[in-house]
Simulated scan of single mutants.
Amino acid sequence: MYKPLLFASLFLTPFSLHALDTRQVPAERLLELGGELAANAGASQWQQLWHRVRQAGYLQANGAPVHFTVPSARLPELARQTLAQADQVQPLQQTHALYRRSFAGLVIGQRGGQPLHALCLLVDWRTLPQGMRDTPQAYLRSTSLLSSYPCD
């Protein structure tokens, strides 16, 4: 008798209540989580990221207002470095975090013809339960690398 009610309540409870709320996590911990994700993200996570980057036009210099200028062969390592050693992290929405790393002396991309020296990487932590933020290993392979782009 109670099982259908319990089952129904799972659908009525917003998933985001149980997911990591990046707005409630100290920046230091978000930076540590980024480092753990950089070390443990799987090939499919990175492939999906680069697919989204390509779709957004960030790899096309022709006519794109914001685009990468660094050789595309270097981007995977620069993205890993951004996650592993971000200069800063900013919580966005409820489960997203934007990781940013500046690469002094290296032009990562351009915005409207102006050089950009930093790389930004957007991560969605919604698959990491709030209660598992200190032991996230089992959830890192399901974390979404949403986008990456040159920034200032």
Rank of each mutant, 00 (worst) to 15 (best):
E77F: 01
S144C: 03
P71C: 00
F68K: 04
T82V: 06
W125T: 08
Y58N: 08
V53C: 01
Y149G: 00
W46S: 11
G131E: 14
T69N: 12
A43K: 09
E32S: 13
Y149D: 02
W50S: 04
Q85R: 15
A79N: 11
W46L: 14
L128W: 08
Y149R: 06
W125A: 07
F68N: 05
L78G: 05
F15N: 08
F7C: 02
G42S: 04
R141V: 09
G131Y: 02
L128T: 05
C120P: 07
Q114T: 03
L122A: 04
P136A: 00
A97C: 10
A79Y: 05
P26G: 04
S72H: 11
H18A: 13
V25K: 00
W125H: 06
C120K: 07
S16C: 03
S147Q: 14
I108E: 06
L5G: 12
H67Y: 12
Q114K: 04
L121Y: 14
A41C: 07
Q24Y: 00
L146R: 13
P115C: 02
R100E: 10
R54T: 14
R111F: 14
T13Q: 13
G131V: 05
L83W: 02
G113V: 06
A61L: 11
Y58K: 03
Q130P: 09
F103C: 09
Q137R: 03
L30V: 00
D21Y: 04
T82L: 06
N62G: 11
I108V: 15
Y2T: 07
A38H: 09
Y99W: 08
E77P: 01
T69W: 13
R52V: 06
F7G: 00
G105A: 03
F103W: 05
P65K: 02
L146S: 00
G105F: 05
P129W: 11
A56N: 14
C151F: 11
T127Q: 10
V53P: 09
A27G: 06
R133K: 03
R52Y: 12
A138Y: 05
L17P: 00
L59M: 15
S148G: 10
R133P: 03
Q94N: 11
P76D: 08
R54I: 02
L31N: 00
A97W: 11
E36T: 04
P14N: 10
N40V: 01
P14Q: 10
L12T: 14
L5S: 03
Q45N: 04
D124E: 09
M132I: 01
Q94M: 07
Q85Y: 13
G35M: 04
Q81K: 12
L98I: 00
G112M: 06
G105P: 05
D134A: 07
G42N: 12
Q85I: 09
T69D: 13
Y2M: 08
L31G: 00
Q48H: 13
L20T: 15
V66N: 04
D152N: 13
Q94R: 15
Q45G: 15
